[in-house]
Design a protein around this nucleic acid. Structure first.
Lengths: 194, 194
DNA sequence: CATATTTAGTACTATATAGTACTAATAGAT
DNA sequence: ATCTATTAGTACTATATAGTACTAAATATG
């Protein structure tokens, strides 16, 4: 059954990653995780000494997943900035729909649901957004260089705006149960940069 | 002690409104609410048959509070649209700081933390944003009429963008513990409309 | 093969906490 | 003055659930 070491660990994280978003961290019991993942409780606690440690692993999982997805689209230099952004947002919108409009932004959703003492976790999420900011800045700068956006555009400031806009779109999509708003608002936004 | 009927009810809602945002709905016990509010447990349950009913009252409280604050700034017709928007955002930013960067947007924060079965509550919050959207549309349209924004601006679409941007700014402010981003991004945003 | 790591299973404990049941006092309204 | 609505207090129950303790088996690794 066990193909390779730590297979259960990874599986538990993946199941928890979905459950924590769809049902909420506080509303997901370890017993339910055991039931859904089909991994024994003793083994779950063998890998994670408590629920909060599992939550940290879940946050790391989402960060790694997003980092990977972001790098993948950014590196497709043959595409326009607008095309790459749209591609990425379509992935996000799909994820939101798959999760039935729950946990549209995994990071802020988990940060909000985490217990007050989980400061470490919140810092890591803060760092993620700081890194995202610089990546988007470079992308916007590239858009300006390539003539996609007008010259007056300040990459840093517009990157900040882009991210806040995206985050808001994710949560509004959640409340309105409409994932199209994610790509639509970004399209509108980029129109303002032409 | 009791000045007027239902004084405790109101007081409990106000205390819960803060506790639910600062500590989280799931992490706020009814015992703590009793301790902080200094209202007896029996009386709390006299007014609210369970915790979820209290949560609904809290959401209604925030909706009423925001509606009032929004109407108040919108109606100051002698001010420019930009001035009114900035005024309102400064109020929001102050609230975020007072709550120490917790629950920057009360509605989405509470919606995310509410139990899965609280569908009613989520619908009410969805409605709030729909109403907000039409109010902001009118305001943007006024900005175009008055020549503050360029003529090509489409009020509906830009209102949607403005709201997503604001929501995102609130949550990014929370993760970065920096409230200035709320007014800054809005300023940047409105620059794009000139 | 021998040893360490990973896994399952079962039963259990401890604790937090939502909610109840009662009595009795106080305030408001008519 | 009387009746109803609101309040406090105290003690209690029921339950969910995080985490533990143990045994034993299966798998990986050197």
């Amino acid at each position: 059954m066990m193909k390779n070491k730590l297979m259960n660990r990874k599986h538990v994280i993946e199941v928890a990653a979905i459950l924590f978003l769809e049902k909420g961290f506080a509303y997901t019991s370890m017993d339910e995780l055991v039931r859904v993942s089909k991994v024994s409780k003793s083994n779950v606690y063998y890998h994670f000494s408590n629920k909060e440690e599992l939550l940290e692993a879940v946050v790391d999982y989402w960060i790694a997943k997003y980092h990977f997805a972001i790098e993948e689209v950014i590196n497709q230099q043959q595409l326009s900035v607008e095309q790459r952004v749209t591609m990425f947002l379509m992935q996000l919108a799909q994820g939101v729909q798959v999760r039935e409009f729950k946990g549209s932004c995994p990071f802020i959703t988990l940060a909000i649901q985490s217990p007050a003492q989980a400061t470490q976790l919140k810092e890591r999420i803060g760092l993620f957004f700081a890194e995202l900011q610089s990546k988007v800045s470079l992308l916007i700068a590239q858009g300006v260089e390539r003539g996609e956006f007008r010259k007056a555009i300040q990459p840093e400031e517009i990157a900040s705006l882009f991210i806040t806009n995206l985050e808001g779109a994710l949560f509004i999509a959640e409340t309105q149960k409409d994932a199209t708003i994610i790509t639509k608002t970004a399209q509108q936004f980029m129109k303002l940069l032409h």
